Simulated assay, not measured.
Amino acid sequence: MDISRKNKIQKFEDFVDQRLKPDLVRAIAQRDKVFEQQKVFSDLRKNIENLEKNSATSLRTLVNLGSEVYMQADVPDTRRVFVDIGLGFHVEFTWSEALNYISQREEKLARQVEECTNLIASIKAQIKLVCEGIRELLQLPAEKKPASERNF
């Protein structure tokens, strides 16, 4: 194999290892963060719906202070809730206002998940394309798909 072909292969491998794979890891981590936010808002929506269903006006609960240390808390009036809207800001909402905000936020998070998923698919396709280029430079035969994956 000549030197220029070896250099091309090395550049392609470096591009995959140093650029595409870290990008893929970051995109997956970003999508995981969005999934966590979705779960938080989903849990909040369920809790507010339970409060409405049970007509609970007061509440006794445990609050996580950090490091799995809990403290008992009394909430004398549950008709209003404080929702973290980001950047350390909390807004006081009625139950219906909070549910409206949560549904809007869940729609936005669903779009973010879709964007992240598309980015992940794009990066994976780029990795596969570069690997196919390396395979061609090495003049290796194409991989055969198992019978279950073939398109007829």
Results as ranks from 00 to 15, higher is better:
79 R>F: 10
105 R>I: 01
74 D>G: 08
80 R>K: 15
85 I>N: 05
72 Q>W: 04
72 Q>N: 11
97 E>S: 05
87 L>V: 13
89 F>T: 14
76 P>Q: 13
72 Q>E: 12
104 Q>W: 03
104 Q>C: 03
91 V>I: 13
87 L>R: 14
81 V>M: 09
75 V>A: 05
99 L>T: 00
70 Y>G: 00
84 D>S: 07
75 V>I: 13
99 L>G: 00
89 F>Q: 14
99 L>W: 01
102 I>G: 00
75 V>E: 04
87 L>W: 11
79 R>C: 11
98 A>P: 01
84 D>K: 04
105 R>V: 02
84 D>F: 04
105 R>M: 03
75 V>P: 01
94 T>I: 06
98 A>S: 06
73 A>R: 08
104 Q>Y: 04
77 D>Q: 12
100 N>F: 10
88 G>E: 09
85 I>H: 06
83 V>I: 13
92 E>R: 13
70 Y>W: 09
73 A>P: 02
94 T>P: 02
78 T>Y: 09
75 V>C: 08
84 D>M: 05
70 Y>V: 01
75 V>S: 03
100 N>A: 11
101 Y>T: 00
68 E>F: 08
90 H>P: 07
71 M>Q: 12
86 G>T: 03
85 I>M: 06
70 Y>H: 05
70 Y>F: 11
76 P>V: 12
88 G>L: 10
80 R>H: 15
84 D>I: 04
85 I>F: 06
100 N>M: 09
86 G>N: 03
82 F>Q: 15
91 V>Q: 12
97 E>W: 01
102 I>Q: 00
69 V>Y: 05
81 V>W: 06
81 V>L: 10
94 T>F: 05
88 G>T: 09
86 G>Y: 03
76 P>E: 13
103 S>V: 03
70 Y>R: 01
71 M>N: 10
102 I>N: 00
68 E>H: 07
80 R>A: 15
83 V>N: 02
80 R>V: 15
86 G>F: 02
89 F>R: 15
102 I>M: 01
86 G>W: 02
85 I>E: 09
93 F>D: 07
94 T>M: 07
82 F>W: 15
83 V>P: 01
88 G>F: 08
77 D>H: 12
83 V>E: 02
94 T>N: 07
102 I>H: 00
92 E>S: 14
79 R>E: 13
102 I>C: 00
73 A>W: 03
72 Q>V: 07
97 E>D: 09
87 L>Y: 13
102 I>D: 00
80 R>E: 15
100 N>W: 08
103 S>H: 04
88 G>H: 09
89 F>H: 14
90 H>K: 14
105 R>H: 04
86 G>V: 03
74 D>R: 08
105 R>F: 01
89 F>K: 14
